[in-house]
Design a protein around this nucleic acid. Structure first.
Lengths: 138, 138
DNA sequence: CAATTCAGATTACATCTGTAGTCATTGGGA
DNA sequence: TCCCAATGACTACAGATGTAATCTGAATTG
C-alpha cells in the first residue's frame, strides 16, 4: 500500500506527530476538515470573510501546512487540491490531551470539575455526559 | 481600597484579561502558583532543572510576565519578589474555555465524549465525575 | 575603601506566527 | 498567436517566543 492515487506529502513530521498547528492555520484546517479536497480559492471562500484575510494569507498558511506535513497536495490542472493528512479527531485528541496534561495533571476529572464550577456546562451537556457515563459502565 | 501594601503592577492588560501566557512562561507561573512570592533565584530552582534553563532565561520570562501584567513585583532589599496577579483558577478557566470553544463548538459534552473514547478517563475519573454530577443535580 | 559578586535591565538572535505583497508561469480566450 | 488573468512560489516584515549573553549598579566582604 505505497502509492494510493497521487497525493504528495512533503516529508516533515512523519512519526512523532508533533508539528503544532497554529491558530491561523487551524482555521484553514477547519475548512478542509469540513470538505476536502479544496483549492486555495475555495478555502479562501470559507475563511477569508470570517477572518478578514486575503488570498495571499491563505496561500501562505496552506503552504506552511504542507511543509508541516499535515496537508497533502494533488495537482488539478494548473492548481492544487489540498487534503488534510491528519484527521480532525487526531488533532482534537492531541490538543485535548495537551490541555489536560498541562493544566490538570493529566486527569480529566479536574477539568470536568472546573467546567462544572465555571458553569460552562449546560443542562444538555450534563444530560449527555450522564448518558455517556452509562454507556461507559456497560 | 487603593494601596494594599506595595505591590507594583505594570499597567498592561487591566480589564480584558487577554494577554496570553506562552508555554515557557506558563512553567514560571506554575512555580509561582505553587508558592509565592518568590525571588527569581527561587523560581529558577523550581524550573531550571526541569526545563534545562539558565537563570537569564528565567529572568527574561519573569520580566515578560511582569510586562504582561500577570506578575507583580515587590522589592525586597536588592532583589524582587514575584507574585502572580492572576489566579491559577482564572488562567485554567480561560484556557479550558478556549479549547472547548475552538475544538468543540463551545460544548463540553463532546470534549467529555472525546476523552472517554480515547480512554483518557480512568476509573477514578469516572467515579469522580459521577460524584460531581450528583452534586450538580442537587 | 576597593574589589567581587549578585540581581535586575538591556540587548541579542533565531524561529514561529500573522498577514501580505510581488514574481513568474501557464492555460484560455480574443 | 499573443496577452491577460489566475495560481503557485518567493519574499517581506513586524511582533511573539525560546533561550541566552552582557552590561550596570549596588551590596558584601576583606
Amino acid at each position: 500500500m505505497t502509492g494510493d492515487s497521487s497525493l504528495t506529502q512533503t516529508d516533515a513530521d512523519n512519526g512523532g506527530g508533533a508539528e503544532r498547528i497554529s491558530d491561523a492555520e487551524y482555521a484553514v484546517m477547519e475548512a478542509l476538515w469540513q470538505k476536502s479536497p479544496q483549492t486555495a480559492a475555495e478555502v479562501c471562500d470559507h475563511v477569508c470573510d470570517q477572518r478578514g484575510w486575503s488570498m495571499p494569507t491563505v496561500k501562505t498558511l496552506l503552504a506552511r501546512l504542507v511543509t508541516k506535513g499535515v496537508l497533502a497536495t494533488q495537482p488539478d490542472g494548473r492548481r492544487f487540491l489540498y487534503t488534510p493528512l491528519v484527521a480532525r479527531e487526531a488533532y482534537v485528541g492531541t490538543e485535548s490531551r495537551r490541555l489536560v496534561d498541562r493544566l490538570f495533571g493529566g486527569r480529566a476529572a479536574p477539568l470536568f470539575a472546573h467546567l462544572a464550577e465555571s458553569e460552562a456546562l449546560s443542562a444538555e451537556d450534563i444530560a449527555e455526559i450522564e448518558h455517556l457515563l452509562r454507556e461507559l459502565k456497560k
